[in-house]
């Protein structure tokens, strides 16, 4: 293959983590309320009720302590329409996003409205909370809002117009004194990216798929970089291609004995900086063989995986093994520590 003209390589990069958020006193009471099918607002010194709650008073900067119930019904103050919902949004069919001022609140909450069709949405429309069947104490305990034709509710829910599963808030204790208060939420965050490599890195990866290690020389400092890249010392792309041998010297290393999140190998293992013959910068890699005997200056060679599995990845080299040659003298690699 003509690797020089091949387009830069790109590949998916997916990241995912379930974030664990602690809530503190205000948000904790708010979430506890949601679990118990109550919406609470935060009252600031000026008497205004904020839903969602603020933790600190914007005017006085003091912590907010007073939470008051508001109604599960409210009025749309602004809206838009989503034809194709994205991953993680409240509904998987077309729906409206809306700013909703709940009865008894002075500010508006952003949430989804299950209105069926765009034509049903309008500013000023009345909506009510549709509670999730299973609630754990987070904002998604409100599954969404739905159009409501009943009269405005008082904050304690006593004039519920449409009794049923989504009717009045559960009677019971103030969430502040709830026996099992919510103190945290779990928020999964999953994102998909496309990672794009540079032309130089792509040529290096294509060479790897053919079992070759490719370096490039910086036109300014004349150092040979593996993999090729913009020379970080001079800020110019490396140009002249220089083949690099798959033998080298361990400059320094670490024995990893500890498991950690995101780890892909089972400890213990040795990660060493390997200065390949012909290169001016070491690469990190695994050393396997003669366990416990890895030394600074040890001579090593790449162990390639089965040729049939080679692709455009550094993983074609499984690890490095000691060659048994005499150790390189310290002076030969001391500039690379």
């Amino acid at each position: 293959m003509d690797t020089a003209s091949a387009p830069p390589l790109a590949a998916p990069l997916d990241i995912a983590f379930d974030y664990t958020r602690s809530l503190g006193p205000v948000l904790g009471r708010f979430m506890t309320g949601l679990r118990d099918r109550r919406v609470l607002g935060a009252r600031t010194a000026d008497g205004r009720v904020h839903v969602p709650p603020l933790e600190y008073d914007p005017a006085t900067h003091t912590p907010i302590t007073e939470l008051v119930p508001v109604s599960p019904t409210g009025t749309v103050t602004s809206w838009t329409w989503t034809d194709r919902p994205l991953d993680g949004q409240p509904l998987d069919r077309p729906f409206g996003w809306a700013l909703i001022r709940l009865d008894g609140a002075d500010t508006a909450l952003l949430h989804a409205v299950d209105a069926g069709a765009r034509e049903s949405m309008r500013t000023g429309m009345r909506v009510r909370v549709r509670w999730a069947a299973e609630r754990s104490g987070d904002i998604r305990d409100i599954a969404c809002f739905e159009p409501d034709s009943g009269p405005p509710h008082s904050p304690d829910g006593t004039t519920s117009g449409a009794p049923g599963t989504n009717g009045a808030p559960a009677a019971g204790a103030d969430p502040a004194t709830s026996v099992d208060p919510v103190i945290g939420i779990v928020t999964p965050i999953r994102l998909s990216y496309t990672h794009t490599a540079s032309a130089e890195e792509s040529r290096y990866l294509h060479a790897l798929s053919e079992g070759r290690l490719l370096g490039q020389r910086c036109p300014a400092c004349r150092k040979v970089y593996v993999p090729p890249r913009v020379c970080p010392a001079d800020g110019v792309p490396t140009e002249e291609e220089v083949p690099v041998r798959d033998h080298g010297t361990v400059t320094t290393f670490c024995v990893v004995n500890v498991p950690f999140a995101g780890q892909r190998l089972e400890p213990p293992y040795v990660v060493a900086q390997v200065l390949l013959d012909g290169a001016d910068i070491p690469i990190p890699h695994l050393i396997i063989g003669q366990a416990g005997d890895v030394r600074m200056g040890m001579r090593v060679a790449a162990v390639w995986r089965d040729r049939a599995t080679w692709t455009t990845t550094p993983e074609n080299i499984a690890h490095f093994r000691p060659t048994g040659e005499p150790d390189a003298p310290y002076e030969s690699y001391q500039e690379h520590l």
């Binding site: 838009t80 994205l86 993680g88 904002i139 998604r140 939420i185």
Partner: peptide, 20 residues
Amino acid sequence: PYVTAPLWPDSVSVAALQAR
């Protein structure tokens, strides 16, 4: 991240709410 981001409102929809 507590009351809004878990619903994943996209930036175009948020701007639309402002435009309306």
